[in-house]
Simulated assay, not measured.
Amino acid sequence: MAKGNIDGFYQVYEVFSKRNQKGDFQHQFSLLAPNREMAFIMAQENFMRREPVVDLWVVKREDIRMMKPEEREMVKRLDNKDYRLTKGYGYLKKKWRQYEQNMLDEKEIMSWGEMGKEGRKKTQ
C-alpha cells in the first residue's frame, strides 16, 4: 500500500487555489478521492462555490517532495541572513526625529542677530 493511499482505494490530495491573477497559490485543504479527476471535482464543489477563485491546483500528496530532516538542519545553518532583513533600519525614524529636533530653525537663528544687536547697544 502506498504512503498516500488509504484503504487501497482513496488517495490523499492537496488543494491549492489562487484568488486573483496577481496573487500567489495558497494551500487550502486536503481531501480523499479515488482518482485525480474526482479529486478536482470535489475540490471545485467544496471550495469554488464559497470563494472567488481564478485557478485551482489539485496535487496527489505522494507526488509532493518534502525535505528530509537532515536537509532541514542544513537549511537552518544556511539561514543566517539577518543582514537582508530591513528590521535593522527601524531605529532610523527615531534617530531622524532627534536630529530634526536638534536642528536650528529660522526664528532661533534670527534671534541670535537680535542678541548681537542688544549686546552691541549695551557696549556703545
Rank of each mutant, 00 (worst) to 15 (best):
A2F: 05
K3E: 01
G4F: 09
Y10T: 12
Y10G: 10
Y13G: 03
E14Q: 08
V15S: 01
F16S: 05
K18H: 03
R19Y: 03
N20S: 07
N20Y: 12
Q21M: 14
G23A: 13
G23T: 05
D24K: 13
Q26R: 07
Q26N: 13
H27E: 11
Q28E: 02
Q28Y: 00
Q28I: 02
Q28R: 06
L31R: 03
L31N: 03
A33L: 11
P34T: 04
P34Y: 07
P34I: 15
R36P: 10
E37C: 06
M38R: 09
A39R: 15
F40P: 00
I41K: 12
I41C: 09
M42G: 09
E45W: 01
N46T: 06
R49K: 13
E51S: 09
V53M: 10
V54A: 10
V54C: 08
L56I: 02
V58P: 00
V59P: 03
R61K: 07
E62Q: 14
D63Y: 09
D63P: 09
I64Q: 12
M66V: 07
K68Q: 05
R72W: 12
V75T: 00
V75C: 03
V75S: 05
K76Q: 07
D79N: 01
Y83Q: 08
K87G: 13
G88T: 00
Y89H: 11
G90C: 14
G90I: 11
G90Q: 08
Y91A: 12
Y91V: 07
Y91R: 12
Y91I: 08
K93I: 05
K94I: 15
K94T: 12
K94N: 13
K95V: 07
W96R: 12
Q98A: 14
Y99M: 07
Q101L: 09
D105E: 13
E106A: 05
K107E: 04
I109R: 03
M110Y: 03
W112T: 01
G113S: 11
G113H: 01
M115W: 05
G116K: 15
E118T: 00
E118M: 01
K122S: 08
